[in-house]
Design a protein around this nucleic acid. Structure first.
Lengths: 226, 226
DNA sequence: TTAAAAATATGATATTTGTCATATTAAATA
DNA sequence: TATTTAATATGACAAATATCATATTTTTAA
């Protein structure tokens, strides 16, 4: 079993506050998992009873809406934690987590994590800050959904994917989303999303090759996103 | 200066975890304020450096969008706290707070509150749970904005106002919002909001008398909201 | 490899929502 | 109270977006 001490998740997440002793104990109680693209890590309504550390890969957090469609609330990538809100609220998770690519994750049981809250104030503060960051992001996202047009949201989302997850060697966006998934981030019909991508292509803003998307004119996209 | 011990805010908020000693100290360092309807408590981008306790009244939390319109992210009422996220993140507030009716609030400086985090674990957990609740609410709200029609969102918002803030003796909604404010909760143009209210009235779902709104057919509204 | 299934693309059209113009009513204030 | 200003209301129209149909391409799996 791999040690937690040099893990990328420890480096970037709230877990960076853990002491040597806490890390050794953590190494013993965690379980490692390989998740295949498309696999469900947990589903809305489930009792997860712990948190997941993402060692590698990206997943989407989705919520089923009343009309039966999934909405993608957030993308989460390596170095980040999953399931904190649910653990703290002591409630079932309110979102589903599905792998967008092959992933490596570790699971830490709730009993272990709750101990850190009691004994390690810095850890508590880190978790709080991380959740506060999510909340601020959610507020921003909300206002965008309420006030911006679909075109603006698409441009913004493409820029976000570029900034957050970077590019492949062929300079296409690293995170590959289906048109359907892209539509469910920006909150529109799949056809509308496809149509706007075609428009962007015709305007020379992007290049489309199968699922691959290359951003050709970042400045123009920024203007479109306002 | 009034004591914090019997205050409604202490009863319902994270502050319920404070000890007798902490409460006595708190009574000394807090400042009380009367806020008039329409007054700004704080503005997006400001450094607040503490939290507000709402003893009485309701306020709106708004965020300016790129197109210059305000969006109402959340309504906050007596017994609740304001400014927690900003204080924990150590950032300017990301939302403005404006009184919807006359309010009584107390301000507790950051230095005082941060001390509780170090010494009182139950207080920390309470704050975390409260912010986690906000985050879950924000996720729900986000999906509604992305997936529901304006009509569905209006019906849902009317029901929410009824459930959360209750009715006056004349059975009209207690929180009085202008059509403009209502529109900026549901994320639509003021005229569209007005038009849909008229439709609801014609269908016998609500009654309109000036600013007053009476819900006549809750079940039909529930069906409309899905 | 080939057939079947799924994803992407595009046209035609309907519906929803926004915008602008203009009444009408209510509220503020001189 | 009278006058001004702001809020509410409604019509006419334009723009944005969704829906349905269908073609094309890509992916999956027999």
């Amino acid at each position: 079993m791999s040690k937690c001490e040099q893990c990328i998740v420890r480096e970037f997440s709230s877990l960076k506050a853990l002491t040597k002793d806490e890390l050794i104990k953590l190494s013993d109680c965690k379980t490692s998992h390989i998740i295949k693209k498309g696999d469900v890590i947990f589903e809305e309504g489930e009792n997860v009873n712990g948190i997941y550390c993402i060692k590698d890969g990206v997943c989407k957090l989705t919520k089923l809406s009343a009309n039966g469609k999934d909405h993608i609330v957030k993308l989460v990538t390596k170095g980040e934690l999953l399931g904190q809100r649910s653990m703290i609220s002591d409630e079932p998770v309110n979102l589903s987590a599905v792998a967008l690519e092959d992933m490596q994750v570790c699971f830490i049981p709730k009993s272990e994590v709750m101990g850190y809250f009691d004994k390690n104030n810095q850890f508590s503060m880190n978790v709080m800050k991380s959740i506060c960051g999510d909340l601020k992001e959610a507020d921003d996202h909300m206002v965008n959904l309420a006030q911006k047009t679909v075109k603006e949201r698409l441009a913004e989302t493409l820029l976000y994917l570029n900034d957050t997850f970077g590019k492949n060697e062929d300079s296409s966006l690293k995170v590959q989303l289906s048109r359907d998934e892209l539509a469910s981030i920006i909150g529109t019909a799949t056809e509308s999303c496809i149509r706007l991508l075609s428009d962007f292509k015709k305007l020379g803003l992007i290049e489309l090759t199968g699922k691959k998307i290359v951003l050709k004119d970042i400045n123009a996209l920024k203007k479109l996103a306002e």
